[in-house]
Design a protein around this nucleic acid. Structure first.
Length: 226
DNA sequence: AAGTAGCA
DNA sequence: GGCC
């Protein structure tokens, strides 16, 4: 498996992009990186596909097993959708709110996630789940691990759109000190391999307005759940 | 268990 | 920011 943080990102998609606008890879861990601006060329296809998914599976706030309502509103697409309620965290084939299967993962979602994983050194990523998170100003995600998946062999691919955020990238215990990673519209974080179970979270989103997405941050988290 | 408040 |  190729994992060369120094090699430039070379995709036909970026051939016409100005040199100073070329995406850049920044390592944040042994097998973790941020791909700056990587999602930007997909946006024209990504946003209409997002609208279609949300029409079928609207954002809703969920309750944690501890009984607290999350500040982030969630939806999902793909074979499996992540949900939480008083009984616990789980992946389900159907949206509990409609009883219907989660919307199919749009091709453009899959292509972007697979391309990002490949750029980060993880070949043949086949996500079967995309959790869609909406953060309004003040919304946050406290430190947690993604550990409801059946296998940890596949990486996590996290796409940021809209308002900026500070991503917390921690260690293997909640008490370990976290790195603070600023994330902008179009940035993608990928972590896997030895870093797959690292704690992570998001600081409260600051007030602001994004020209394309308005007063919100949208995050896609791609995973292989099964 | 992906949460908050209160206190240092 | 860290503890519970």
């Amino acid at each position: 498996m190729r994992y060369d943080p120094m090699s430039p990102i070379t995709l036909d998609l970026f051939a016409d992009v100005e040199p100073e606008q070329q995406p850049r890879r920044e390592q944040i861990g042994e097998q973790s990186c941020v791909l700056r601006g990587f999602a930007l060329p997909w946006l024209d296809r990504l946003l209409p596909a997002l609208e279609a998914v949300l029409a079928a599976a609207p954002f809703r706030q969920m309750v944690t097993p501890g009984g607290f309502t999350m500040s982030v509103a969630l939806s999902s697409c793909g074979t499996w959708g992540w949900t939480t309620d008083r009984s616990g965290y789980k992946y389900t084939r159907n949206d509990p709110q409609t009883g219907l299967p989660w919307p199919e993962m749009p091709e453009v979602f899959f292509e972007l996630a697979q391309a990002a994983a490949r750029e980060a050194g993880f070949t043949d990523f086949v996500p079967d789940s995309c959790l869609i998170n909406r953060y309004i100003p003040g919304a946050r995600m406290s430190l947690h691990q993604d550990k409801n998946e059946g296998s940890y062999a596949a990486p996590i691919v996290s796409v940021s759109l809209g308002l900026p955020a500070t991503f917390l990238f921690g260690g293997f215990e909640r008490s370990a000190k976290s790195q603070r990673v600023p994330l902008l519209h179009g940035d993608i974080v990928v972590w896997g391999g030895v870093d797959r179970l690292r704690y992570h979270g998001v600081l409260p989103i600051k007030e602001g307005y994004h020209p394309q997405l308005g007063e919100q941050r949208i995050n896609f988290t791609f995973r292989t759940a099964e």
